[in-house]
Nucleic acid binder design. Structure first.
Lengths: 330, 330
DNA sequence: CTGTTAGCGCGTTCAG
DNA sequence: CTGAACGCGCTAACAG
């Protein structure tokens, strides 16, 4: 009995079974424009491929075409929550519809230079949350990466596709509080340097909204995720006459609420970001702001696809992107 | 002025600059055993490679060797929290130390057959949370994927590396409550079919611990993430004489606490899983159980590396893996 | 020892 | 619709 060495099925196998050349197999399977293949042959090839379970080697294709259908996303090393998680899931779905395979690299950037990563993947595009260095961008371009997107960051030379949505979050928070009659706003800044990249545009949004409404600009206090420590910030706001606080996210908001409770005062109104499950279970139930992650994902997907095909970039449907969920805390 | 077409640097370029053959370049760069290269030549090659910024084409290498250094992790479509996120980060770090590139695919399995994904990546190993079908496993093996691991699942033929830690979580929860004197335990089951794969082994752990301690086995109630709805379960437990509840995770635990608060009763003790930030901020502060994600990641990494090198698999240091964080709720 | 030549792996694509 | 070459790195066989 022969050994059942499970060999990879190649286009040569398909060609042999179908009784045609490898070139023909390629033309049929790719629907190559400008090549006319008789229906009979086409069927034979398709049948053979199906019967053999043929799967083209991604490596060979990437080698030949110089580009893969993989879109790589580099995650920063801060803890990602379910919100980002669901956005990535949506993005994956959206890109899949355009024939791209979406993968995420969760490693700390310090582990190994990011060049190691895209070298191992040969992606069509790279998406990152933080900035790239100019050298990195050059190197990637040279290696055939079609598109490099930095979602957030400071470099003026970069595209920052997520900057707007983040600012919008701050604006909506402040707008909600101001509409409720508050005239002195506080900002609860996260006690984690790593999320600064998100916190900055959010605070900028709050600031802009306050300025435009001529409301006492945000009094920013750093708030750790600890009731005891949060009391310090709460006391300061209290002394400064702040009546409402925009928090970086729901967790920080919960910390503020915990601080208020600990002090036993009739604290400031609080509004969070994300609508984590714990938000609606808190006392008082937390008013918060959510982003339509599916819409963001669709926008990012469209951006990537457009750039790879050298089409103009789509515009962000900014208005409908962020919603306030009104509960008891503000 | 010539066009500055940023061409990819290939080993041929390095060979030309160094004045040697491509084979020599390969030998030097890979430290090929059994080949002795003079220090002079070696330096010349290394220098040239460095100067040109040479990066071997992963595609070509994968094509030639039939294997890439990528380890692919397929995520299920349930929301992943920071805990899993940090585990993936640790796993990435650990695998990087062994020369592997770790990527995660966050897409829903319904989007496209998973075969599309590993075909596009040609990974050395695939890790998934749920089971693979036998057909999938065969296909992957045939395509050269060295290792296929299902972390959780039911197929007896699969490796289930994470089942133990999950059961351990349940055991620790129940053990803590029993040690505190409780004699009738409840279980708060999540209202999300997708996490069943985690919930089942955890509940099994609780059940086992109860049985061994001859304690009133877990009275399981489904608890939605809503205070109002949680009261139903709390009432039932109350009527049944349950004095302490193990929750599927911290969020479910918070829902139980919210239900208790709403009823205004002197509710059961509650213990969660994960230690999310909101746990310590709750009233009462939530007692919970955490898993040492770094240890799990190290173990998984070792498993993957061992399997790829066809070494025996390591054993899981089960004992030190799960810790109780005692707060006020239990 | 030191290094070279040659051919493979597999899908794509141009000239026939 | 086919033959043949190509993209790039690896490695067996071989010459100095």
């Amino acid at each position: 009995m022969a050994e059942r060495t499970a060999q990879r099925v190649t286009s040569a196998d398909v060609a042999r079974v179908a009784g045609v050349s490898r070139a023909t197999v390629s033309y049929v399977l790719n629907d190559t424009p400008g090549q006319t293949i008789s229906p009979t042959t086409r069927t034979r090839v398709l049948d053979a491929a199906a019967r053999l379970g043929y799967a083209p080697s991604a490596a060979a294709r990437a080698l030949r075409t110089g580009r893969s259908d993989v879109v790589l996303c580099l995650l920063p090393d801060w803890p990602i929550g379910p919100e980002v998680g669901s956005m990535l899931g949506n993005l994956s779905t959206a890109l899949a519809r355009h024939g791209f395979t979406f993968v995420v690299h969760p490693g700390n950037r310090e582990d190994r230079p990011i060049s190691e990563i895209w070298k191992a993947i040969t992606p069509a595009a790279v998406i990152a949350f933080a900035d790239f260095s100019p050298g990195e961008i050059t190197a990637m371009r040279a290696a055939g990466v079609a598109l490099v997107v930095a979602l957030l960051g400071r470099g003026p030379q970069d595209r920052r596709e997520l900057e707007m949505p983040q600012q919008l979050i701050g604006r909506r928070q402040a707008g909600h509080l101001i509409a409720a009659g508050h005239r002195k706003i506080g900002y609860a800044w996260p006690d984690d340097e790593r999320v600064r990249i998100f916190a900055e545009p959010r605070l900028a949004g709050v600031r802009a909204e306050c300025r435009e409404s001529r409301v006492g600009g945000p009094a920013s206090e750093t708030v750790a995720l600890d009731a005891e420590q949060a009391t310090i910030a709460v006391r300061r706001w209290h002394a400064a006459g702040v009546t409402a606080v925009c928090a970086y996210n729901d967790e920080v908001a919960l910390a503020v609420l915990a601080g208020v409770r600990l002090l036993g005062i009739d604290g400031p109104a609080v509004i969070g970001v994300d609508d984590i499950p714990a938000a609606r279970l808190a006392v008082p139930a937390l008013t918060t702001v959510t982003t339509d992650q599916a819409a963001v994902a669709a926008y990012l997907s469209a951006t990537v696809v457009a750039a790879i095909n050298e089409h103009p970039a789509p515009t962000l449907p900014a208005e409908a992107l962020v919603h306030v969920i009104k509960r008891e805390s503000a």
